[in-house]
Simulated scan of single mutants.
Amino acid sequence: MPAAGLSILDARVLEAAADYCAEFTSAAPFPHVVIENFLDPAFADELLASFPAFERGNSVGDDGAPGGKSTLDRIRGLGPAYQRLDDAIKSPEFLHAVGQLTGIDGLIYDPWYLGRGTHENRNGMALDPPVDFNFHPSERWHRRLNLIVYLNPEWEPCWGGCLEPFRDPHADARPVCSVAPLFNRCVIFETSGRSWHAFDPIRLPPERDGLTRSSTALYFYTRDRPAEETAPRHTTFYVNRQLPVRIDEGRTLSRDDVAEIRQLLEPRDAHIRMLYAENTALRRAQDRGLTGHLLYLARRAYVRFRR
């Protein structure tokens, strides 16, 4: 009889832990592993049955407007299945098991679920490659692992939404590989300064337009990490995708080519608008009150001194 913290896993996962760990540590472009049938099948069905409606989660994007992604971090409110999940993943047995799968010991569970929980994406959504924040927002813990379990019983790889690890999204138009978000498939990857990951645009056929890309995402931390992997604290930052390799000199652009180029330009323009808005808000804040008046006097004195 498995320990309570391990009862949610398919028994075959831990039987092959050494093989998965070897795959994790040797994977390119950064340590990761794909595990099929990660959860006990009956438990995976329970999570799917209790998955929250899109409207129940937070669908407000970074720009403050409602979008096509919904997240919910208070998973214990989703019923017995998610309460069991929460009980399991914080147990010493489960944390030790994930350490066996990855070779990373001393993993810490995040009781606040900051950034994690249920994730759902509608048709048309995509993720440009980010590097995730590297420290817990409120603790001095190093973020070490993302563990994602997909809950899509009906999905074809050609529909997009596939996880894409990148070597260097500043230069590479293509990911190293592509992982479809199939039901009860788990992806575990190490979070570091080189763990660039994305998913390609979801393009559902008209008869499947109501489907969404659903998953449960879990983050794990450690109190320390190797010095050569440690970087100053930073937030999550993104790199917009490069032009597809087919867009090259001499090509006559098709209707689809033009549409894709416009799709690639739109987030860049939105990012520029957001940066200008943030800059304007910062300057307005600086101009207010005593501090703003002192800054005004300092700038005025500096300009006159330069003359």
Rank of each mutant, 00 (worst) to 15 (best):
A231G: 13
R144D: 06
S138R: 14
E139I: 00
A126R: 09
M125D: 12
R140F: 14
D128Q: 13
L95W: 03
F94L: 10
V98T: 08
V131E: 00
L218F: 12
D209Q: 03
E154H: 11
L204M: 07
E156M: 15
T216W: 00
P232E: 14
V149Y: 05
S192Y: 00
R233D: 08
P226D: 05
V176Q: 12
I104F: 04
E93F: 10
P226L: 00
N121Y: 12
A198D: 10
D172F: 02
N123P: 05
T235C: 09
R213P: 03
E228Q: 15
D172C: 01
N123Q: 09
T236I: 12
Y150M: 04
V179E: 04
D209V: 00
R122P: 03
L101S: 03
I104D: 02
R116V: 13
P129D: 01
V176W: 09
L204Y: 00
A231C: 13
N184Q: 11
K90R: 09
E120D: 13
R122H: 12
L127K: 07
L145Y: 07
P92A: 07
L147V: 09
E156K: 14
P165E: 09
L95R: 01
S215P: 04
C162P: 04
I188K: 00
R203H: 15
N123S: 08
H197V: 09
H119Y: 06
P169N: 06
R203P: 09
A126L: 15
W159K: 03
S195D: 02
V176F: 15
